[in-house]
Amino acid sequence: MNKTYLISFICIVVAIVVIINGSSDVSTYSTFADATKTAEEVKVTGELNLDEDIVYQPDIDPNVFSFHMIDKNGESKKVIMKQSKPQDFERSESIVVTGEIMDDVFVADEILMKCPSKYKDDEIRIRAES
């Protein structure tokens, strides 16, 4: 058999295997409602609920902080985060948490935040006043 064809064939097989295998690692964003239904880890997007307290007490346990998050369906749920509180957390525009629901609380082990971009039109005015 022609080696070129053999190699091409192997490449295609490998590519298919990689794509099938790799795509199982990919998922879409969920909501708290989805998270309640599954026992697996999910990623939930939403924003910080500023009406509720953000609790971080590093003097008691530096590895835990908790807050409330509103998902894209508008459901607000308490989130317990198992790491120290990221800087500028209060200023985040949107949040992605990875974790699972335990006893009606979303226990997260990873967090990604999107913060407002550094330069905004009103930035100069604020600076000048201060």
Partner: peptide, 8 residues
């Protein structure tokens, strides 16, 4: 479409 992400 919300977009998909790699879990880990």
């Amino acid at each position: 479409f919300d977009g998909s992400v790699i879990n880990d």
